[in-house]
Design a protein around this nucleic acid. Sequence first.
DNA 1: GTATTGACGTAATAATATTACGTCGTAAGC
DNA 2: GCTTACGACGTAATATTATTACGTCAATAC
Lengths: 135, 135
Amino acid sequence: MTAHSHPQLTKNQSMVFGSLSEAGGPLTAYAILDELRDDGFRAPLQVYRALDKLVEYGMVHRLESLNAFVACSHKGCSGHGTAAFAICDKCGDVREFMPDEVVQSLKAWTESNGFALSRTTIELRGICKNCRKVA
Amino acid sequence: MTAHSHPQLTKNQSMVFGSLSEAGGPLTAYAILDELRDDGFRAPLQVYRALDKLVEYGMVHRLESLNAFVACSHKGCSGHGTAAFAICDKCGDVREFMPDEVVQSLKAWTESNGFALSRTTIELRGICKNCRKVA
DNA sequence: GTATTGACGTAATAATATTACGTCGTAAGC
DNA sequence: GCTTACGACGTAATATTATTACGTCAATAC
């Protein structure tokens, strides 16, 4: 497996990823569970296990400030670097972006402070352009 | 109240803030509750209500990736801008810093995308300098 | 063949957070 | 003074999110 291919997903992983992709936005683990009950899912752990793997593969991101998960918005969905999220508190829309400058700055901080970085969370909360117009 | 003074805290707010300050690191709401049982706290809501206010006042930060809270590490504890946190997964130490450059970059993104920013979460997970030495 | 590994199923439970409802004290308006 | 509004509080119940524990099964390594 190269940095830009996916591992073969298991049935459960595929279903969870499918659910998130179709949703086109963030879902909580329990929302996914509800979606997949008809497909035989019975317990939270089935969802959490699949999500763990999908996050590990970079295909799904966890939104810490929502306790929710979202399919990565990039085509290949795999192996790209740190992402940031702008989350609209009105419509719930989540926009993923890749703020290279930001990532570089944070990396500089970690290096000059001897911090071995493993994971970065960047989440912006506010009101999206569209909702501002409507208001 | 000016941008750099605190509001008068209520008894509960003082106790919660005291608990967090004394801890010198992040505590969950329930850990705070346990700390304060001897002082008459009985229910989670007492803690959550105090935390809400303390966060609003800028005296306490919520660490989304830990579901925990930490006293602001700045003296005045009030009214400063966005903070970032480097969280050591080994010793649990949390270091707060103010990455102006990062904040500026993110602000630029929000402005060019019409996003009305209200709250920013920046959390780095990894291993701190000290723990790397020990290992 | 048998030991190891990784995904899975199920149940139980832990940990985190909120809703609902009533009380009390204080300060504002009359 | 009275009373109305408000904000903090107390308590109970419940909702939501996440994990631990334990056993099964299939694929692969030895």
